[in-house]
Design a protein around this nucleic acid. Sequence first.
DNA 1: GTAATCACG
DNA 2: ACGTACGTGATTACT
Length: 889
Amino acid sequence: MVNTQNKLLLIDGSSVAFRAFFALYNQIDRFRAPSGLHTNAIYGFHLMLQNVMQRISPTHVLVAFDAGKTTFRTEMFSDYKGGRAKTPEEFREQMPFIKDMIDKLGLAHYDLDNYEADDIIGTLDKMAESEEWTVTIVTGDKDMIQLADSNTTVEISKKGVVEFEAFTPDYLMAKMGLTPDQFIDLKAMMGDNSDNYPGITKVGEKTALKLLAEYGHLDGLYANVDEMKQSKLKENIIADKDKAYLARALATINTQAPIQINLSDLAYHGPKKEELLKFYGEMEFNVFKKQLIEGKVGASPKRDEVKYTDFSISDPEISTKEIEVNFEEVNENPEIQPDDFFYIEILNENYHRENIAVFAWGNVKKQYVSKNIELLKHFKFPQNTYDFKKNRVLLSRLGIKLPLVGFDSMLAKYLVSTTEDNKISTIAQLYAKKHLVSDDEIYGKGVKRALPFDEELFPHLARKIKILTETKESIISALKENSQYQLLTEMELPLAEVLAKMEIAGIKVKAQTLHEIGNENELKLSNLTREIYDLAGTDFNINSPKQLGEILFDKLELAHGKKTKTGYSTAVDVLEGLASEHTIVAKILEYRQINKVQSTYVQGLIPQIAEDGKIHTRYVQDLTQTGRLSSVDPNLQNIPIRLEEGRKIRKAFVSSEGSVLLSSDYSQVELRVLAHISKDPNLIEAFKNDEDVHTATAMRVFDIANAEDVTANDRRSAKAVNFGISYGETEYGLARRLGIPNKEAGQIIRTYFARYPEIANYIETTKREAKNTGYVSTMFNRRRKLPDINARHFSVRQAAERQAINAPIQGSAGDILKVAMINLDRALESEGLESKILLQVHDEIILDVPLKELEVVKKLVRLTMEKAVKLVVPLKVEENTGLTWFEAK
DNA sequence: GTAATCACG
DNA sequence: ACGTACGTGATTACT
């Protein structure tokens, strides 16, 4: 027998099962067998097995499990693994089925009283080693790294159930500068929180690594500890010697466990097909079942040609099979079919600054790649893209206009589901059940990011083209099934064109103005800093919440409010409550305010001004859960306005020569949407009569007959209620915000619902809908899925309920502005106007308008926004103009 | 990389 | 008994 061919796979079943359970925990309600059994861990375990079996192709396999609660380690340290949360019942019930499944897959499993899975694996690893077998260990537990050696690779699960980090001695040395046995000493010094044993006080990973670099091992440390210079660290090391050695004993894997199995018992001979089919049926693993039936599973693999085709073909979720491509590099005369996909690659995200690296087009059968930019000048662009806006901007920078397409995979996928991101690799996984190598793997991360050789680069692009083509029909079916096809073609795609124009236009920003504000701020900050140090009696970093907390609550002994995970909270609402206690507090609040303006808006924006004197933001069109846009690099949707100090920043945003900025915003758009969706007669009436909605609410809720009798405080309370309602606010929340007793807040909310009965009804109906279907929709069929809506955890479920209430309101309002933008852009075009849309801030549009067009455009914008959709209440628009954004508000 | 904080609608 | 309003992005500290 030629033993060098033997490959042993050892799996830490307990840790992998636990991993699998939590990896799919957010979808736990979707993984249920007809019997009611949860199956997420079973399913995840299966995925993991398929992946590893296919990658490793072992000849022998064992899945080891922890036995019971107590082990020999408990005898050494009674609190071993104490304080751990109880394993959830939903997990525990799945364990026997996982073992059953392993049997049916033809794999061995084993557990041993008094020992952990680690020890079984360690023992078998050593046995296999003496026979010179190759060993792979798969686990979620980093402790196992100590077993890595020239024959043994330890794979630690990284993310999900199929992403692992493979530790060999070389890799461990490169990554942490440690040998496998030093890794044990690392644990000895650090201790292990999850297993509930301490190491040396105040020694974490950083310190432990330093000590190991200096002293080699734990023994080396203690042999030389006397020579260390006097320090807290030294005292701790000496005092905690026993703890460190106990920790080492606990962390050391026992490679002499009295196991009753032999290596030969672990030989793999393929699955038990009939039993497995029955099992898949019971679990409702239909895809596994289908693959097994259609697959080539027949006879067990022969000893000398171990291929495990059964595993490689039956992977339903993530196939590790290569995506086969058929591509060529093109430098002239491109062949393009109208229904091909077109894709451009850039190395980093910002397409305003980044240049085209390479582009590709084609279909499932044939893919083409090119680096020849000239080719694009007379390119017959096909009908399908991924991220149209990015493509449009990049080509526009070359003076090329990319015609609008019929389909865009990124936008389409976003509409179908916002739960995941919309990367091509995600699309590959969801719609083709294939694994696409990630961009980070091909291009590297951080400073190492670079284009690889064409041999690696071109196939990567070809794979993307292939995946995009392959998945298009499935995504379209999903869209149509959701009645969302129009949302793609009539809203998101045309909007992408408008956004591209806006981004390209950019807004002029005066660096000079920012510098002036910055200088004033610096002066104020240095004065404040000095005053704060004086009042504190010591210098410290005011920007560090930790240090600030220690000054306020330990040194000055102010009463601390809520706490964060890491210490005292020093957030505004806490500090505001303390302002009367000590003069330092007001100074700190002022410092914070100015520092925020200085760092984020002065120092942050100046470098963002491009050579043309403008800032070109990017609108992210496929991110938010509600359908709103977001703005990045820089974010122009959160430029200060509420506080005067920050509002000044808007003076730096100016119109172009001979123009003004026009800012038009919807008044109370979300409450109007709520009136429309809920059809509440009182809310509708308030808007129809153009009443001040907060005053109207105050009158109804506080039973006030005349508007004149509504006090400022009444209106403030009513405003809080009006806003709170659309967020699903609780009695407690309102009480805190208004600083009134819970009972009083509860009474206000009850009266509100009595006066606005249809709103109470909307909330109930929407929650019901979400619970029944798993999602909620906007007026335009945009969806938000709510996987947590039936969660067992009260707080998780409640959060999902609030999201269910809010998403249709926020989302519909967002949709309305999108429609208005598209219509406005078309109107400006058809009227031949030079005015340009520059920015969008959720309920407002900012334009650059030549003075001669101002009167016309003001009216046009107002009309377009008011008529964007027809609601049962009017939409109201207010506008302001000025030479700077500061004035136009 | 994560947490805390704070800017906006 | 829980834990407390929805949706974002940027900066800083700290590990």
